[in-house]
């Protein structure tokens, strides 16, 4: 029997980071993972600063739907992952909180019992990849950006994302670079409040990646990709820098190595063009 998960798309990916979804679905199919779809709301992350409890209600409704299907939730977005994972653990471990939330969910005819898990896509694929499934090596110097919410808060969110992304890059044939402030934020959470501050932080990250000699950036979160890919050209012009380091999703570089055709990985949806990096290998 193949492995199946409920796919949690979040807000960003289906709307403006579709290349991540295209490549993840292609990789899942290749690795024998089935992804099922349901109408989910926002994970709750946007609501948290305004109303922590209402944020939990959004998370809980999504978790309840997964429980109704009897399937674990899998996310591509770090923000959704952190929010749903923390909510799920809190609801499992705090009976009073769960009862309080269920009073609201009951009105919708839903309930959280606490019997599913929330996982990041990276976590469910890493053990299915070995030298046997890799058909093409991609020899590039990669600056991986893991993103905050795949690593922190570590009392809830800690699946070894940094080790797992390095493991995949190694199997793919790439070199994973260390660079300054690697674990720090991409700047994206600040873009809504201050685009300048968000881009200042992203600029810092791009500078550090360039100094480490990166030919390619690999991300695993749509918010990070907006900072490092979508905004890269604007950052270059606003800050007077030249980076020209294409940024792609981990599922896109992995997809190439798994032998999925380049054009089936949604790479043309990205704003930076990684063709020059792959030309020598394709």
């Amino acid at each position: 029997m193949s492995e199946a998960y409920l796919y949690f798309p979040g807000c960003n990916i289906p709307y403006r980071e579709r290349g991540y979804e295209v490549s993840a679905r292609a990789v899942a199919e290749k690795l024998g993972i089935e992804l099922m779809d349901k109408p989910f709301t926002c994970c709750g992350i946007n609501v948290e600063p305004i109303d922590e409890f209402a944020s939990l209600l959004y998370s809980a409704r999504n978790i309840a739907i997964a429980e109704e299907e009897g399937m674990d939730l899998v996310t591509l977005c770090n923000g959704c992952y952190k929010t749903l994972k923390v909510a799920n653990e809190r609801l499992k471990n705090d009976e009073n909180l769960r009862n309080e939330v269920n009073k609201k969910l009951m009105i919708l005819g839903r309930e959280v019992k606490g019997d599913i898990e929330v996982k990041h896509f990276l976590d469910i694929i890493v053990d299915k990849i070995d030298d046997d499934v890799i058909v093409k090596k991609v020899k590039v110097r990669v600056a991986p950006h893991i993103g905050c919410h795949a690593q922190r808060p570590s009392e809830y969110v800690d699946f070894g994302a940094d080790i797992k992304i390095d493991r995949i890059l190694e199997l793919v044939g790439s070199t994973s670079l260390k660079y300054k402030d690697k674990d720090k934020c991409c700047g994206a959470p600040l873009l809504a409040l201050s685009e300048e501050m968000g881009m200042t932080i992203a600029n810092n990250k791009l500078t550090n990646m360039k100094e480490a000699g990166a030919e390619l950036i690999v991300t695993m979160c749509p918010f990070c990709q907006v900072s490092l890919d979508t905004l890269q050209v604007k950052i270059e012009s606003d800050f007077g820098e030249k980076y020209d380091i294409p940024s792609i999703y981990i599922t896109q570089i992995l997809g190439i190595a798994l032998g999925i055709p380049y054009e089936n990985l949604g790479i043309e949806e990205n704003k930076t063009n990684p063709e020059k990096v792959f030309k020598k290998d394709l």
Partner: peptide
């Protein structure tokens, strides 16, 4: 990619009814 279904607005209203949000 499969179409994304919209969510019943009434369900959202009920979910957040009475909250500060």
């Amino acid at each position: 990619l499969p179409a994304i279904e919209s969510i019943d607005r009434e369900e959202i209203n009920k979910l957040i009814s009475g909250t500060r949000f």
